[in-house]
């Protein structure tokens, strides 16, 4: 009887302690609003502005391109519980098309400059019988590589956070001012660095540099190559043709190409440097560090990177 009492006592005590622990942990996470961002550039803004006041949701795997994210049911349930979802816009957030998310909680960070979006070619479009022609995509979405656009996205993120955290308005305002100054300064530096390419056509490994080219007056002709995949015979042939056609001997890559790719590029007389779009979290540093690295590469035409 006595032993039963002690068993019951300890069971009750442990469950009470567990309950108390659970409450603490829910308070530490549940007290802060949950914020989701569609990619790393937006995540960086959010974290810089309100990292101490919000709980960030980052469901993307390491190295995954959030533009092609396909959320599982569990991911969507987490997003349904978010207080704010900051989207990139420009057709980037395709997962929204099949996810049950409250649009009232979403903020399209690029909605104010939709009219300046770049439409890409409509390859892969089709129609059914007499139906309308349609395609599934067609808008360039790496908006943030044009830093003036990134600055406008930052403005939207700031506004959304002020609405979410009205008590932190002053802090958010100050952090936004600092961030805007940094982006503007970088934008000026990119413009200055890009001047040297006025008469230099460039090749792009992937069609992600549309806004970057437009913002900094660059002539970039893109292929469909991945830095971590050795290009096929056909890819090399296309590359050689484009080199000859545009007289381009300098190539921009999203990431550092494979050593064997680099050797072949060298053989073909094509120099290269990396302008990373920064879709996902970098292995080291942050988004500003990544932009500065991009800037150095652009300034040095790839030498010394």
């Amino acid at each position: 009887m006595k032993s039963n009492f002690f068993v019951l006592f300890f069971l009750t005590l442990s469950s009470l302690l567990q309950a108390a622990g659970g409450q603490d942990s829910s308070e530490s996470t549940g007290g802060k609003p949950l914020v989701f961002t569609a990619n790393y550039p937006l995540y960086y803004l959010c974290l810089s502005y309100a990292g101490d006041s919000v709980e960030m949701i980052w469901p993307f795997d390491e190295g995954e391109d959030p533009a092609f994210w396909e959320p599982e049911d569990e991911d969507i349930r987490i997003l349904q519980g978010a207080d704010l979802l900051i989207l990139n816009g420009a057709g980037y957030d395709k997962w929204l098309e099949y996810s049950f998310i409250d649009t009232g909680k979403t903020v399209d960070s690029s909605r104010r400059f939709r009219d300046t979006f770049i439409e890409t070619d409509r390859s892969g479009s089709h129609s059914h019988g007499g139906g309308d022609i349609h395609d599934h995509g067609g808008t360039a979405f790496t908006l943030w590589l044009d830093l003036s656009q990134y600055s406008r996205q930052a403005e939207e993120v700031h506004k959304a956070l002020v609405k979410l955290l009205p008590r932190d308005e002053e802090t958010l305002k100050e952090r936004h001012r600092v961030m805007s100054d940094r982006i503007e300064a970088l934008d000026r530096d990119f413009r200055a660095a890009a001047e040297q390419y006025e008469d230099t056509p460039l090749l792009g490994s992937h069609p992600v540099y549309q806004y970057f080219a437009r913002a900094y007056n660059l002539e970039i002709h893109s292929l469909l190559l991945e830095p971590d995949v050795y290009p096929s015979e056909k890819d090399w042939k296309d590359l050689a043709q484009m080199k000859a056609l545009y007289g381009a001997d300098l190539m921009i890559w999203e990431g550092e190409p494979l050593p064997e790719t680099r050797s072949t590029l060298e053989e073909m007389g094509i120099g290269w440097f990396v302008i990373s779009p920064g879709f996902n979290m970098p292995e080291e540093g942050d988004f500003m560090g990544l932009l500065e690295k991009n800037l150095r590469a652009l300034k040095n035409r790839g030498t010394g990177q």
Partner: peptide, 15 residues
């Protein structure tokens, strides 16, 4: 595919 016009595929009724 019923026909292809201007890079656009037109499906037939068997789709």
């Amino acid at each position: 595919v019923l026909k292809e016009e201007k890079g656009n595929l037109v499906g037939n009724a068997s789709v």
